[in-house]
């Protein structure tokens, strides 16, 4: 029996008939055609498939697409605005926070949640915040640095946004 599901991914509405067993990650990759979200394990361990669902980071290999019916999803493809990279993307590039790049989309999505909840994390908080995402290339060192850098950039941007109206008035 197939089920009709509709969800918004990166601001675009998608609607398809799916088998109930279709995992959200396959829906995103194969139905929506957004292949930046990767699959690295089958035990919810590696975090390569991390996306944002209704404001929470989730492992999209451990959610059925039918459970996401009506949800707002953001994937790695939804972070940059035009050619303007998200501060996390920019920081991962600047700090050499990736090598093979396979874990990177999930890592960035996990880091995004971390910084939303804790805009000024310590090194240890960063390490714990990405404990659900495995990287085999970097030893995590430059990932941690990238998240620290992004936190500073985002804090500076937020500062500007808060100040801007005052400057205008």
């Amino acid at each position: 029996m197939r089920h009709r599901v509709a969800m918004t991914i990166n601001g675009t509405q998608y609607e398809h008939e799916v088998e109930p067993r279709t995992l959200l990650v396959y829906y995103i990759r194969e139905q929506a055609g957004l292949t930046g979200t990767h699959i690295g394990c089958d035990t919810s361990s590696c975090g390569a498939c991390t996306v944002e669902m209704d404001g929470h980071s989730v492992k999209s290999c451990t959610v059925f697409a039918v459970q996401a019916d009506g949800a707002q999803i953001t994937t790695i493809e939804g972070l940059a605005v035009g050619s303007q990279l998200h501060p996390l993307q920019q920081a991962f590039w600047d700090e050499h926070g990736l090598q093979c790049g396979y874990c990177t989309p999930g890592m960035i999505m996990a880091a995004k949640q971390l910084l939303e909840r804790n805009p000024k994390p310590t090194e240890q908080e960063i390490r714990l915040g990405i404990e659900g995402n495995l990287c085999r290339c970097t030893g995590y060192q430059n990932i941690v640095k990238a998240i620290e850098t992004a936190a500073r950039t985002m804090a500076a941007q937020a500062g500007k946004e808060v100040k801007a109206p005052a400057a205008v008035s």
Binding site: S44, S57, V58, L114, G129, E131, G132
Partner: peptide, 9 residues
Amino acid sequence: IGDPQVRNR
């Protein structure tokens, strides 16, 4: 429990 993503779901 688990990791942040697991705790979210």
